[in-house]
């Protein structure tokens, strides 16, 4: 019998005093294992899912704190598969990122995939100081390939992304996709696509405007030097192409 998992992982990055970035805190938790994969000016960390999940009822959190002058790149080894739990409760995945002045965070994980019957709430809060730099990618895929192939409906993904820059909110948006969300597949929301994503860029050069003929747009956010590339695609592969400048 499975019990719900509660896990709280943390990463703190600060300059190591020799032109590189040190990770004084690199603490995985529960199914979230963290591996430092390379040193150098930018520290690189890979999130490794140590078990299947998240499952319904799980509460996972990851806090990242990038101190002034540090640079951190976080990726993941594989897609995160959201699976149904036993009691129908949703899983929660909370991300809380703080990036200080003259610091930079690249959050470029693999997609989150909502398997049939799953329900996942993700909540991402990003707090940027003035002059903080960010690359943040988020990809959501509705249904595993074999779910869709056998005609099963996808799971549900409710995802909120809140970004503050120098104390001011510059982005706050929630998408609610999958069975149970009103008109989630209609002509205002997904319109038949099965993959949705963003690339948020702050303090770096903006990605190019997406080519015509795709359901994608480069949006200039109200903050300073901040853009959101938002894209929809039939599948994860084509979404990734649209989100890769």
């Amino acid at each position: 019998m499975s019990t719900a998992v509660v896990a709280d992982a943390r990463i703190t990055a600060r300059p190591d005093g020799r032109g590189g970035t040190a990770l004084p805190v690199l603490a995985g938790g529960g199914p979230i294992a963290l591996r430092r994969t390379r040193g150098g000016a930018t520290a690189r960390v890979t999130v490794i899912g140590a078990m299947a999940g998240p499952l319904g009822g799980d509460r996972l959190a990851l806090r990242i704190d990038v101190r002034p002058g540090a640079a951190l790149h976080v990726g993941s080894a594989a897609a995160t598969i959201s699976l149904p739990g036993r009691d129908g409760r949703p899983a929660r995945w909370d991300l809380d990122f703080t990036v200080a002045e003259d610091a930079e965070l690249h959050w470029l994980p693999e997609p989150v995939v909502a398997a049939t019957g799953s329900r996942l709430l993700t909540r991402t809060r990003i707090t940027l100081a003035a002059g903080a730099r960010l690359h943040y990618r988020e990809e959501q895929v509705l249904g595993r390939h074999h779910d869709l192939a056998r005609g099963a409906p996808p799971g549900r993904l409710t995802s909120r992304l809140t970004v503050r820059q120098a104390g001011r909110p510059i982005l706050d948006q929630q998408t609610d996709l999958g069975p149970g969300a009103p008109a989630w597949d209609g002509p205002a929301s997904l319109g038949g696509h099965r993959a949705a994503g963003h690339l948020l860029t702050v303090g770096h050069p903006a990605p190019p405007v997406p080519p015509p003929g795709h359901d994608a747009a480069l949006l200039t956010l109200p903050g300073t030097d901040a853009t959101l590339l938002t894209a929809l695609a039939p599948d994860a592969l084509r979404l990734r192409r649209l989100l890769t400048p």
Binding site: R160, T162, D172, Q173, Q174, T175, D176, P187, A188, S189, L190, G191, A196, D215, A216, A217, L218, L219, T230, A231, L232
Partner: peptide, 12 residues
């Protein structure tokens, strides 16, 4: 902060 992806893309 409920939003709909296609509304943003279509508006642009």
């Amino acid at each position: 902060a409920a939003s709909a992806p296609l509304l943003d893309i279509l508006a642009e």
